[in-house]
Deep mutational scan, measured.
Amino acid sequence: TRVETATETAWISLVTALHLVLGLSAVLGLLLLRWQFPAHYRRLRHALW
């Protein structure tokens, strides 16, 4: 049971790290898009909202 718990903890930390990385890359990508294509971003936002 001790090994299982350790594996579970490792998986949880791995998944958390993955989610953090994905979230950060998504935010960075959005910022980059907004910085590179302001007109396109505004049009996209206008279409979405």
Rank of each mutant, 00 (worst) to 15 (best):
A6D: 09
V21S: 11
V15E: 01
L20I: 12
L22I: 08
L20M: 13
L31R: 02
A26C: 14
W35G: 15
A47F: 08
V15Y: 04
Y41S: 08
L30S: 08
V15A: 09
F37C: 08
A39Q: 14
I12K: 13
H19S: 00
T7W: 12
E4G: 08
T1N: 08
G23K: 01
R45F: 05
H40P: 15
L32A: 11
W11C: 05
W11P: 04
H40E: 08
H46V: 07
L30W: 12
L30N: 03
H19F: 04
R2T: 14
I12P: 01
V27S: 08
L44A: 07
L30C: 14
W49Y: 06
V3S: 02
P38K: 14
R43F: 07
L31Y: 12
V27G: 09
T9V: 12
H40V: 07
L24V: 15
R34Q: 02
L48C: 12
L33W: 07
A17G: 12
Q36P: 03
W35Y: 15
W35T: 15
L22R: 01
R34G: 06
E8I: 03
G23C: 14
R42C: 08
T9F: 13
A6Y: 08
H40T: 09
G23L: 13
L14W: 00
A39D: 14
L30E: 00
V21N: 00
L28A: 03
W35D: 05
R2F: 09
L32R: 04
Q36G: 15
V27K: 03
H46T: 09
L32T: 09
H46G: 09
G29E: 00
T9M: 11
F37Y: 15
A6R: 11
R2I: 11
L18Y: 03
A39E: 13
L32K: 04
V15M: 06
G23W: 10
L30T: 08
L31Q: 06
T7F: 08
A17D: 02
R2A: 11
Q36A: 15
W49L: 05
R42V: 08
G23T: 08
W11M: 09
L28E: 02
L44Y: 06
T16V: 12
T5D: 00
G29L: 15
A10I: 10
R43G: 07
Q36Y: 15
T7D: 06
H46C: 14
L18N: 01
L24F: 13
F37S: 03
A47D: 05
V3M: 07
P38W: 07
H19Q: 04
H40W: 08
H46I: 06
V21W: 00
T16G: 12
W49N: 15
T1V: 10
R45V: 07
E4K: 09
S13D: 06
V21I: 14
I12W: 07
A17I: 12
T9D: 09
T1I: 12
A26W: 04
V15S: 05
A47I: 07
R43V: 09
P38E: 09
